[in-house]
Design a binder for these strands. Structure first.
Lengths: 234, 234
DNA sequence: GAATCACATTTCCTATAGGATTCACCGGCC
DNA sequence: GGCCGGTGAATCCTATAGGAAATGTGATTC
C-alpha cells in the first residue's frame, strides 16, 4: 500500500510487481541482499508490505537476469558473487559482443548519438568516485549508459538481447561495491577515443577502440580483484 | 542411496508453473498460439485447469525469452512473427556469438564432445523433414543440440547466456513452421565440416567453418522467406 | 451517419487462506 | 560421540475471492 501510494502517479501506470522488481534490484545492488542469502517470498512480502503474489512474479522476472537462482519447492536465493575468473569470463564475453555493437552502431551514428555519448562521458567525469553506494551509482549509471547507447544503436534487437543477457554488469557493480571507482581516468580516456571514432564515422576504428577499452577494463579489474582479495583476507 | 536417488539426480519435483511453462512453449511452437493473439491469464488457467497464479508465473518467465510481450494492466500477447529483415538480424547476431563459441569450445574439446556432436549430425540425417510440427521438431532439436553443445563447451557462462538470449531460435522455428526443412543437406555438410575442425583441434578453422555455416543458413533462409511470402500471398 | 456516453462483461491485479514440503532443532539410540 | 527419527515452525505452492481497470456493446444525441 505504502509503495503503491508512493509512486503510482506516473504517466504510465505501474503495477505492484514492477515496484517490487525495482525494490529488489536496488536491494541487490545496494548490498543489503548479500550473495548466497535466501530471498523468502513471504518474508519479502511482509517487508515490502505487499502480498506474496507480486513478489513471486517479480522474482520470476529477476531469475532471467541471473541475479537470483531458483530451486523448485526451495525458493530463491541471491546468486553467488563473481570470482576473479568469472569476471574475466564476463570481459571475454563483452569482447565478443560489444566490439560488434560498436562496429554496427557506427553505421547508424548521427549527431544525436554522438551528443548523447558525449554527455555520458561528461557525466562520467562529473560523477563522484567514493566507495559508498550512493556515490558509486552515478558513475556506474553513466558508464552503463555509454555502452547501452552503443548497443541500442547497433539496430539489432538480438544483439541487444545478448548485451542485456550480460546483465552481470550489475553484479560487477556488486563485486566492487566495497571498493569504489579506481580506474575512472583510464575509462574516461578510452570512452573518449571511442567517441572520436564515432564522430569520424570510422566503424573499424570504433571496433578496435572498444576492444582496447574492454581489455583495459579486464586487466584493471583483475588487479583490483587481487587488492580486494587481500583486503578481505586481512 | 536409493532414497536419495531422486534428489541426487537433480530431478526435483516439478511444480505446476513448470508444467504451464512447458505447455505454453509447446503451444507456441506448435502454432496453436498464433502471433499477435492475446494470451489471457484467466483463460489459460481455465484451459489448463489450474489457478491463475502458476500461469502468471510461467508467463513472467516466458516474457524474458521474447516469445510473449506484456503490457501492464492489459496482459500478455504472443510476440509478432519475424520479418525477413529480422531473420537476417538474428543471423547477424549469431555470426557475432557462435563463431566465438566455436573458437573457444575447440580449446576444451575432447572425445566426448566430438562424439556428441557426431551423434547430433547423425540424428540430423535421420530426422524426417516433413512440414508437420511433429516431424520438424526432431530435426530442429538435433540442430539446436549441435549448436548448444558448442556453446556450452565454450566454458563461459556469459557467452552461454548470450546464446540463450538468442532464443529466437524457437521463433525461427515458428517462422518456418509451415514450410518444413528445405536445406538439410547443406546444413548436414556444414555441420560435418565444423566437426572435422573440432576433431583436428583447429580452433581457427572451427570459427571459420561456423561463420560459413551461419552465412549459409542466412542466405538460404532469405530465399525461403521469399518463397514463403509468395505462398502466403497466393 | 458519426460521435459519445452508460453499462455489462471480461480480464488483470492483489490479497488471503490452507495444504504440502522443507528446514531446524532436539531427544533417543547404537 | 555420532547417527537417526520425530516434532514444530517457516516456507513454498496453489486455489479462491473481490476490487480495479480495460474492452465491447448498444442506445442516445448532434
Amino acid at each position: 500500500m505504502a509503495i503503491k501510494d508512493q509512486a503510482s502517479r506516473g504517466v504510465s501506470r505501474q503495477v505492484l510487481a514492477d515496484h517490487v522488481y525495482e525494490a529488489l534490484l536496488i536491494a541487490l545492488m545496494d548490498g543489503r541482499l548479500e550473495a548466497g542469502t535466501p530471498v523468502s517470498i513471504d518474508g519479502m512480502a511482509r517487508e515490502l508490505d505487499v502480498s506474496p503474489t507480486p513478489v513471486r512474479e517479480a522474482l520470476a522476472r529477476l531469475e532471467a537476469t541471473g541475479m537470483v537462482r531458483r530451486t523448485a519447492l526451495r525458493g530463491y536465493r541471491v546468486a553467488p558473487l563473481f570470482t576473479a575468473a568469472e569476471l574475466a569470463d564476463l570481459m571475454d564475453a563483452r569482447l565478443v559482443i560489444e566490439p560488434a555493437n560498436a562496429f554496427m552502431a557506427c553505421g547508424h551514428a548521427d549527431a544525436d548519438l554522438t551528443d548523447q555519448l558525449s554527455q555520458a562521458i561528461e557525466d562520467l567525469k562529473a560523477a563522484p568516485r567514493g566507495p559508498s553506494f550512493a556515490e558509486f551509482r552515478a558513475y556506474w549509471e553513466a558508464d552503463e549508459r555509454f555502452h547501452r547507447l552503443i548497443a541500442e544503436h547497433a539496430n539489432n534487437q538480438f544483439l541487444l538481447s545478448a548485451y542485456n543477457a550480460l546483465g552481470g554488469q550489475v553484479q560487477r557493480f556488486r563485486f566492487f561495491g566495497g571498493l569504489g571507482v579506481t580506474d575512472a581516468d583510464f575509462a574516461i580516456a578510452e570512452h573518449t577515443e571511442i567517441l572520436r571514432a564515432f564522430e569520424a564515422g570510422d566503424a573499424d576504428l570504433a571496433r578496435r577502440k572498444m576492444i582496447a577499452h574492454i581489455e583495459g577494463v579486464k586487466q584493471r579489474s583483475q588487479h583490483d580483484s587481487e587488492v580486494h582479495d587481500s583486503e578481505v583476507r586481512s
